[in-house]
């Protein structure tokens, strides 16, 4: 397989001791097995995420993402940027779209960057990790390293919002994207159809409007149960955290018995590629995916 190299933007939640640290663990293991090299962009910063706008406004937010591009261009020239976090990827893409097509904002952004001794050239495209997998490697290449197919496990592929809208993956439909289901099938699992595939988990409003957000989460998990899924799988760190963490809160308030593991696609792939439970970050869950842990011991 041809070796692929990217400038890697891990994002805040993937850092050691942060809420998606096990996502990064599994991404590293997955990339090793696929011979994909990801080199961390030196000194990257937060993208502002989905609620940065309210206090940060427009230009400070543009500057944050532009700084990441500028650092990638300076230190890792010629390499495409890859992000694993849905919000990081979305913010970088939005900012690139905005400043590449607006000379005034481009000039102002560069004026701000100059205060940090940096300049945005606009030479680096940004990709999400699932785009790298699907578009650059392809399903056949992703299937090759499978040594422990996830046979008999039913997954609800929870695509959510920000890898899906507004840009989407591989030109797929916003209403029923199928790439995540295909990824599940590529590693030998079964993807169940269910009706909450692209429902919003509440995003950052999980913190500020817990009741409203937990209603969304309950709908998502209950629909996964109703359609026979044993686990949920997602490409987004905030979806993962919200949908896993608040199940116990919903149970406390509503007497439900939600207890469904929520995994990252990269964890499924690491397990299927023969990785250990630790390499797949399976020790990083509040609701353990015991059937996946069992496969790693086979």
């Amino acid at each position: 397989m041809a070796k692929k190299e990217y400038a890697f933007y891990p994002g805040c939640s993937s850092q050691k001791g942060a809420s998606a640290s096990n996502y990064l663990t599994s991404v590293n293991a997955m990339c090793d097995k696929l011979d994909v090299t990801i080199t961390e962009i030196p000194d990257w910063n937060c993208c502002g995420a989905s609620i940065g706008y309210a206090e940060g406004g427009e230009l400070p937010r543009l500057a944050l993402s532009a700084r990441n591009f500028a650092l990638a261009e300076q230190h890792l020239p010629g390499k495409e940027m890859v992000a694993t976090c849905a919000a990081c990827w979305l913010a970088q893409r939005e900012v690139k779209d905005r400043i590449d097509h607006n000379e005034v904002l481009l000039k102002e952004t560069n004026e701000a960057l100059a205060a940090a001794g940096l300049q945005y050239q606009g030479t680096t495209p940004v990709r999400h990790m699932v785009e790298v997998l699907i578009e650059d490697l392809g399903y056949d290449a992703l299937k090759q390293p499978v040594v422990k197919p996830l046979e008999g496990i039913k997954f609800a592929g929870y695509v959510g919002c920000q890898t899906n809208r507004p840009f989407g993956i591989d030109g797929e439909s916003f209403e029923n994207p199928v790439y995540l289901d295909k990824l599940v099938e590529t590693v030998g699992g079964e993807a169940v159809p269910y009706d909450q595939k692209v429902t919003c988990c509440g995003g950052a409003l999980a913190f500020s409007e817990p009741e409203k957000s937990q209603k969304q989460i309950r709908d998502i998990v209950e629909s996964a149960y109703d359609h026979g899924a044993e686990m949920i799988v997602t490409p987004c760190p905030l979806c993962q955290a919200n949908v896993e963490i608040y199940q116990s809160e919903i149970n406390k308030k509503h007497g439900t018995k939600l207890n469904m593991p929520v995994l990252y696609y990269s964890q499924l792939m690491t397990v299927a590629y023969g990785g250990t439970a630790k390499e797949a970050g399976l020790d990083g869950h509040l609701i353990r995916a015991t059937r996946l842990e069992d496969i790693t011991k086979k």
């Binding site: 989905s50 919002c161 920000q162 809208r165 507004p166 916003f174 919003c200 509440g202 995003g203 950052a204």
Partner: peptide, 8 residues
């Protein structure tokens, strides 16, 4: 919630 449903 920044879900972008309205936008698409």
């Amino acid at each position: 919630t920044s879900c972008y449903n309205c936008m698409v």
